[in-house]
Design a protein around this nucleic acid. Structure first.
Lengths: 155, 155
DNA sequence: TATTGTTATACTCTATAACTATA
DNA sequence: TATAGTTATAGAGTATAACAATA
């Protein structure tokens, strides 16, 4: 047997866990320069693209629990990247938006992560890279119970 | 924008995190029937394939820290699936091996995970599935500092 | 009564320092 | 002194129950 873990290499879950742990480590290193982690980065990008978003909906989109999102937003608000504003129609809710600084940091962080992504997939053709994305999204759909079909209000 | 997280979908890390969380949840559900988790399953398979393995080497293979492996092996030993036997040449070390029961559980768990794997990649051709494995392993190698070249003693 | 955001909490995973026993 | 396995511990990440304010 060439590798001591050869048996496990036939399972996508094993290869994916290893590949992901490598990516996670690297991306977090890239994002640290912006004071961000993977989750706070993801939240920042989605809020920028969907201004007026409410927390419950954002939690659905990112597939995280509402209580966990609170700390993520506290983090982003403390760094002056995101605003929570009381919703006029429903005063229980907040409307989320990025600040001017948040938009700038988001833009630069996206570019940095894109550069890192390019380095990680270096050696794959454009077609192979697209095939990878499609395969991952197909696998994600297999496990979905999910109602991620709803549209999001845009300002 | 079709999806609220469309910007993030261009990053392999994002697609991979979501696909992996789906797989992890599912595979853990499959393994629960055998009293195993993903890590204990991985350890069991590698020990079966590399009898006489020492803990430090197993930790390297699975890319986990030695202290964390201890609890994993405690778990496997308590379930009578794995044996720790004092090494004759070096009495600090243990030689790891699977019990008769461990071999049987391993065999059946491998088959169950393989069936689940087939379901997850259903819709991908054989070639596409191989391409997925190759892409994931390529990404893993990008982040390696690593010395995973050493061979493992086989009984 | 139900929902939004929140608090408190617990459980897993992961990472590091320091210990013991052997070498 | 260095190494193998271990202990203790701390930090993330993640999950659930229950609360206050509002609907």
């Amino acid at each position: 047997m060439p590798r001591p873990d050869a048996s496990l290499r036939s399972f996508v879950g094993y290869d994916m866990k290893r590949a992901f742990s490598v990516i996670q480590y690297d991306v977090n290193a890239v994002l640290m320069a912006f004071g961000l982690r993977m989750v706070t980065f993801s939240a920042l990008v989605v809020i920028r693209d969907n201004p007026g978003l409410r927390q419950t909906r954002l939690a659905q989109i990112l597939m995280i629990e509402r209580p966990n999102l609170v700390l993520i937003l506290d983090d982003l608000e403390r760094a002056d990247l995101v605003l929570r504003e009381r919703c006029a129609e429903d005063r229980r809710a907040y409307e989320l938006s990025v600040t001017e600084q948040g938009a700038q940091v988001c833009e630069r962080a996206v570019r940095a992560v894109a550069r890192h992504d390019a380095r990680m997939t270096e050696g794959l053709s454009e077609a192979q890279c697209q095939a990878l994305h499609r395969a991952l999204q197909l696998i994600e759909r297999k496990g979905r119970t999910g109602d991620d079909t709803g549209s999001v209000s845009r300002a």
